[in-house]
Simulated scan of single mutants.
Amino acid sequence: MKVLETDRLTLRWIEAADAEFIMRLLNEPGWLQYIGDKGIRTIEDANGYILKGPRAMYEREGFGLFLTERKEDHTPIGLCGLIKRDGLEDVDIGFAFLSSYQSQGYAFEAARATVELAKDIGIKRIIAITTKDNESSSKLLEKLDMQLEGYVTLPNDTEELKKYGLNF
């Protein structure tokens, strides 16, 4: 189901047919370094991730991480969306793109549209979390007018993360 469209991108619900892409993205060096190893090694693992992660969140919240693809050729290039995480009071924005599609403005384009979606569905505030060493994500969040508010540690984790916020 299509959720958002920008000049160059379509953001839509993740489907079972996207499992191969999900497996590839979740094993990218940047995903492993900044987000963490989700243990997705097979198509079956990727299908489980899709069902228990994004698809379950769509059902529960009406939003989640959306597959981001280029309009011109329908090539999947990343994920961007809204997430309701355990341990965080506010909805947060998340994004990850294949390395071959980074530094081309796609992440900002998708994230900006996702911020507008949050406003449209009545969310009054969003946050974002990122590792302290993920400079490119921090710069993108600042470009979205999000302000560094401090640090947070998620349940069942030990790493302190940067926390950004934006009120509407």
Rank of each mutant, 00 (worst) to 15 (best):
K2S: 11
K2I: 15
L4K: 01
E5K: 01
E5Y: 00
D7A: 09
L11V: 03
R12P: 00
W13K: 15
E15H: 13
A16K: 12
A16C: 01
A17E: 13
D18Y: 02
I22M: 11
P29W: 02
Q33S: 13
Y34N: 12
Y34Q: 03
Y34D: 06
Y34K: 03
R41V: 02
D45C: 03
A46E: 03
A46F: 02
N47W: 10
G48Y: 13
G48L: 14
I50H: 09
I50T: 09
K52N: 15
K52T: 15
P54Q: 10
R55Q: 15
R60F: 07
R60C: 09
R70N: 00
K71Y: 05
K71Q: 07
E72F: 05
H74N: 15
I77V: 09
G78N: 04
G78T: 05
C80Y: 07
G81N: 04
L82Y: 06
I83H: 06
R85G: 03
E89H: 13
G94S: 03
F95A: 08
F95H: 06
A96F: 03
A96W: 02
A96G: 10
A96M: 10
L98H: 10
S99M: 12
S99D: 14
S100H: 09
S100L: 12
Q102S: 06
Q102G: 02
S103E: 15
Q104D: 06
F108K: 11
E109Q: 11
A110F: 09
R112K: 15
A113L: 05
V115K: 13
V115E: 12
A118S: 10
K119F: 14
I121H: 01
G122H: 08
I126D: 07
I127N: 11
K132F: 01
K132N: 03
D133F: 06
E135T: 14
S137V: 02
S138E: 03
K139S: 12
L140S: 08
E142D: 08
E142S: 10
Q147D: 14
L148R: 08
E149M: 09
G150A: 04
V152T: 14
L154S: 00
P155C: 00
D157R: 14
D157C: 09
T158K: 12
E159W: 02
E160W: 04
K162N: 12
Y164N: 02
G165N: 01
G165K: 06
N167Q: 15
F168C: 10
F168A: 11
